[in-house]
Design a protein around this nucleic acid. Sequence first.
DNA 1: TTTCTTATTGCGAATCTTTTGCATTTAGGA
DNA 2: TCCTAAATGCAAAAGATTCGCAATAAGAAA
Lengths: 128, 128
Amino acid sequence: MLRHAGFRATYGRVALLEMLAHARKPVRVETAAKAVRGKLDLTNTYRALEALRRVGLVRRVDLGHAHTHYELAEGKHHHHLVCDSCGKVADVEIQEKEMERAALRAARDFKSVRAHSLEFFGLCNACV
Amino acid sequence: MLRHAGFRATYGRVALLEMLAHARKPVRVETAAKAVRGKLDLTNTYRALEALRRVGLVRRVDLGHAHTHYELAEGKHHHHLVCDSCGKVADVEIQEKEMERAALRAARDFKSVRAHSLEFFGLCNACV
DNA sequence: TTTCTTATTGCGAATCTTTTGCATTTAGGA
DNA sequence: TCCTAAATGCAAAAGATTCGCAATAAGAAA
């Protein structure tokens, strides 16, 4: 995958992709860096994730915190429902196309929608 | 408004609300602070905006940048379509309720949705 | 395999946004 | 006018992310 995307397949990047593949929810850069400790430091984890994002191997997830999360870009684009209380994250699929069309209809003066970010916040069953 | 919300009506906060009332799009904290220069410094602009947000007078808008934007909380909750090229912002209204219901349906294990964030990115008519 | 080019990395320092501490000022009720 | 808690300014801290640069290593070529 890495070579095909024009990258060198370094231990750090491979480890990074592997950890993302096993993660069950979007991961903070700091967490990712710790997971590949010894193979890639924090600075280069930032650089690697950004590079991987640019070629579409990973996606940025903005959960409204001060820090960015990343997840492996597999399957279709989806959103998240985050528990306010425990932080649990569930994947959510929504009628994307229709929503973007609606946005375009609502926004006079715009010709196209390239992307959107949509995250939900609420309570999971295990929390009060 | 300020007194009614339990605040002291200081020059700084009044100026802040006035500038937000005239702004045509969500404003960065730094920009807001410059606009009320002399009446409120950067630190207290942060404090004031957060306080105003807690009582519902302003809303936070997260456009996916490294910094937070704020807008006056008037009218119904809405979203934004941001031009990738020039940064122009248009307001967008979407069928909120139905979307949140759909999210809840899609996310097993969740009992409620308190809020969501939704922003669109694309190109306005004036840009390439 | 060895060599060579340059992408990648580590590390320190810088930058940017946001928060905190604290002494001083001030809005607004008594 | 007086008094107290809310607000404020300023300096410094904290957290996230980026930059600069010399050292290292992946992978193509010999």
